[in-house]
């Protein structure tokens, strides 16, 4: 007989996303995948509870983006009709507010996206939270297989479709990326009716961020892949092949001049500099 699985208490951290082409606010792709994972968990483990948490300023644009998450719970039978908004001034550090809120009523599982679509977008939030709370962290989660006796069995996504099965003691923080199941459609009606429960929290200005200079990202130069293939089979092999490192070299304990020289040499060899 299978051991009885009990529902888990899940908190999903959601952020205001940014559409890659138009820059409009939207539900962030990875966070939405995180919520999808949580809703799937709820289906798998009856009695689970999902709550949504966001720390940041409240504005018209961000509110409609956050409601996008609430629209995903349409009739899922979850009672997920509120989102807890830890209201902070623009430019505040979200980590202390989130850590404090999570520590006050600890869920068993915290799900977040890997990297925010706007703001700093460093991808450090899950790590910083895990450090503060002293909880284990699993990144790149693809699925939660089961939760038993306070231990979750999860599948971690590795490059090229590989999966690694891990056991993690709860409470834990997990982050999801593009390998997690795609988010379901967000329904307008439930999103509009749902409530944002705003709680003002002490704003700790993010001193470091304030000193940064923001500039639009430049497209990174991409190495051209020149395929000299005679047959279709060769072309297919070239397209499917792993990016070969091979000729690279690891420089350790070298001076700045030596490093710069090595980089210059490589750029000349690649024909980037002439």
């Amino acid at each position: 007989m299978r051991p009885e699985q009990q529902g888990v208490d899940v908190a999903v951290l959601v952020s205001v996303g940014r559409h890659p082409i138009t820059g409009r606010a939207r539900r962030a792709d990875q966070d939405a995948r995180g919520l999808e994972l949580a809703l799937g968990l709820e289906r798998q483990l009856p009695g689970s509870r999902v709550r949504l948490l966001h720390a940041g300023p409240r504005g018209e644009e961000s509110e409609s983006a956050l409601r996008g998450y609430l629209g995903m719970a349409a009739g899922a039978g979850t009672g997920l009709d509120t989102l807890t908004l830890l209201e902070q001034a623009e430019g505040s550090d979200a980590i202390p507010a989130l850590a404090q809120h999570l520590a006050a009523a600890p869920p068993q599982l915290v799900i977040t996206g890997t990297r925010a679509e706007r703001g700093e977008g460093s991808g450090l939030l899950p790590y910083a939270l895990a450090e503060r709370l002293g909880w284990p962290l699993v990144n790149g989660l693809a699925a939660v297989e089961k939760v038993e006796n306070g231990v979750a069995t999860v599948l971690q996504a590795l490059p090229r479709g590989q999966r690694r099965r891990l056991e993690v003691r709860l409470p834990a923080i997990v982050s999801v990326d593009g390998a997690a199941p795609a988010a379901r459609q967000s329904a307008f009606g439930p999103a509009r009716r749902a409530e944002l429960e705003a709680t003002p929290v002490a704003a700790e200005p993010d001193q470091e961020l304030a000193q940064w200079q923001m500039a639009p990202a430049r497209k990174r130069p991409k190495r051209l892949k020149i395929v000299k293939a005679a047959s279709a089979r060769d072309r297919f092999k070239a397209a499917a092949a792993k990016a070969e490192g091979g000729s690279g070299q690891v420089l350790e304990g070298v001076s700045a001049e030596q490093g710069a020289e090595a980089i210059l040499k490589l750029l000349e060899a690649e024909g980037v500099l002439r």
Partner: peptide
């Protein structure tokens, strides 16, 4: 679409595109 959020196949993607772009 508005209450179930259940537009089949590419429906959801097209609607998301219309909203964003």
């Amino acid at each position: 679409t508005l209450e179930h959020g259940n537009t089949p196949n590419k429906g959801a993607e097209v609607l998301d595109n219309l909203i964003a772009t």
